[in-house]
C-alpha cells in the first residue's frame, strides 16, 4: 500500500511538474460569453505568477425535446487576450447531454466539439496546446462521457484535463476516474443552496468529508478555488433564485432594504433592483469566500496528505470578484501550497 502511494506521488510529482518548495503557478477561469476585460482583470492576469487563462469557449447542452446536443454561448471577443499567457479552452458539457443520448454520442460528439474548438481558436488567433472538459458526470453517464474523452483525445492528439468535483473524489469507485492526463479539483460549491446559515460555496467542514481519500486519487491534480459570490433570494424560507454578479454593496445605499439580525438584507417594499424583482419581506443571503478562508485551504488539504497541485486556479476572473482581494492575494494563496 505504502509502496503504491509512493510510486503514485512520484508520478504525480513528475507529471505535474510540481516541485516541493516552489509556489505553484496561478491561473484564472474566465466564464463570460463575451471576453471583455477591464483594468482589474488585466492587472490580475499580468501578475508574474499567472501563467495561463482557462477560457470557456462554449457550452454543450441537449435541450429536452430537441434533436441533439448543440453548442451554446460561444465566446465573443471585445478585448484582447493577455499576451504571453497560455490560453486553455474549456468546454462545459451538461450531464444531461450524455444522459439523454445513446452510446453513439461518444462517436459523433468529439469531432464536432474539436472542430468548433479549432475554428474558434483559429478565428481569434489563439494557439492551443491543452483543453479542458468540464462535465459533472454521474454513474449513469460515466461510460459515455469517458468514451467521449478517449475519442476526443485520439482525434485531437492534444492534452486534455477534466474537472473533478468533490463527490467524484469521494465516490471514485462508483463514478470512476476519467481517462485524461490531468484533473482539476473544483474545491467549491460544497453545500446546498438554501435558506440556512450555511455557505453553499465554501464550507471546510463539508469539504473535509469529501477529501479523506484525496491523496489516493490516481490523476495529477490542479486546484480550482472560488473567488466568486452571490446572493440568494429567499421568501418564506424557500429559495427564489440566485442573484448573480450582485454584491451586498450594490444595495448599500438603497433605503428599500433593511438589515436583519442575521445580516441578511430584507426588502422593505416590493420592487425591482438590478433586474430582479423582490416581494416585500424577501431576504437576501449573501455568500462570499473570505480571504482568510482561502488562505486556510493549504493547511486543510495537507491534513489529508494532499496538497500537491500543479496549478492553483481561481474561479472566476471578474472585477466584482477581484475587488474583494488584494492584488498579491492570489500568489499568497498559492504560496501556501509550497
Amino acid at each position: 500500500m505504502l509502496k503504491r502511494n509512493l510510486l503514485l506521488n512520484i508520478i504525480v510529482f513528475l507529471y505535474c511538474g510540481c516541485t516541493p518548495g516552489v509556489t505553484p503557478e496561478q491561473a484564472f477561469y474566465y466564464w463570460k460569453t463575451t471576453y471583455d476585460t477591464g483594468p482589474a482583470e488585466n492587472n490580475a492576469l499580468a501578475r508574474p505568477g499567472v501563467k495561463s487563462l482557462y477560457l470557456r469557449f462554449f457550452d454543450v447542452d441537449h435541450f429536452p425535446g430537441t434533436e441533439g446536443p448543440v453548442p451554446r454561448g460561444r465566446i465573443q471577443f471585445n478585448a484582447a487576450l493577455p499576451a504571453g499567457k497560455e490560453i486553455i479552452p474549456v468546454i462545459f458539457i451538461t450531464n444531461r447531454t450524455f444522459l439523454s443520448a445513446s452510446d453513439s454520442i461518444a462517436d459523433y460528439l468529439p469531432g464536432r466539439v474539436w472542430k468548433l474548438i479549432k475554428q474558434t481558436a483559429a478565428a481569434n488567433k489563439i494557439k492551443i496546446s491543452e483543453i479542458q472538459i468540464d462535465c459533472d458526470w454521474t454513474q449513469a453517464t460515466k461510460k459515455r462521457y469517458f468514451k467521449f474523452l478517449s475519442n476526443l483525445n485520439l482525434l485531437s492528439r492534444i492534452n486534455i484535463s477534466a474537472t473533478i468535483r468533490l463527490h467524484q473524489v469521494k465516490y471514485r469507485k462508483e463514478t470512476g476516474v476519467p481517462p485524461v492526463s490531468k484533473g482539476m479539483l473544483m474545491y467549491y460549491n460544497m453545500g446546498t443552496i438554501d435558506a440556512s446559515a450555511n455557505n453553499s460555496i465554501f464550507d471546510p467542514a463539508i469539504a473535509a468529508r469529501y477529501t479523506g481519500n484525496l491523496n489516493e486519487y490516481p490523476l495529477p491534480l490542479d486546484l480550482a478555488l472560488p473567488i466568486f459570490g452571490w446572493g440568494i433570494q429567499i421568501r418564506n424560507g424557500e429559495v427564489v433564485q440566485l442573484l448573480n454578479k450582485m454584491e451586498r454593496s450594490d444595495l448599500a445605499g438603497d433605503s428599500g432594504f433593511a438589515t436583519s439580525a442575521d445580516n441578511r438584507q430584507i426588502a422593505r417594499h416590493p420592487g425591482f433592483h438590478h433586474g430582479y424583482y423582490f416581494q416585500q419581506g424577501d431576504a437576501i443571503k449573501w455568500e462570499t469566500v473570505t480571504p482568510e478562508a482561502l488562505l486556510a485551504v493549504p493547511e486543510q488539504l495537507a491534513k489529508h496528505g494532499a496538497g500537491k497541485f500543479g496549478k492553483i486556479v481561481f474561479y472566476d476572473l471578474d472585477a466584482i470578484n477581484l475587488n474583494r482581494y488584494e492584488e498579491n492575494f492570489f500568489e499568497r494563496v498559492a504560496a501556501g501550497f509550497r
Binding site: F92, T94, M186, N189, V239, Q241, N244
Partner: peptide, 19 residues
C-alpha cells in the same frame, strides 16, 4: 427555469433546497 440556467452556467455539484 431561470434558476436552472444559472445552475448550468456554474456547472457545480450544488443542490437546491425547496425547488
Amino acid at each position: 427555469i431561470f434558476l436552472k440556467e444559472w445552475l448550468l452556467a456554474f456547472g457545480s455539484i450544488v443542490t437546491i433546497g425547496g425547488i
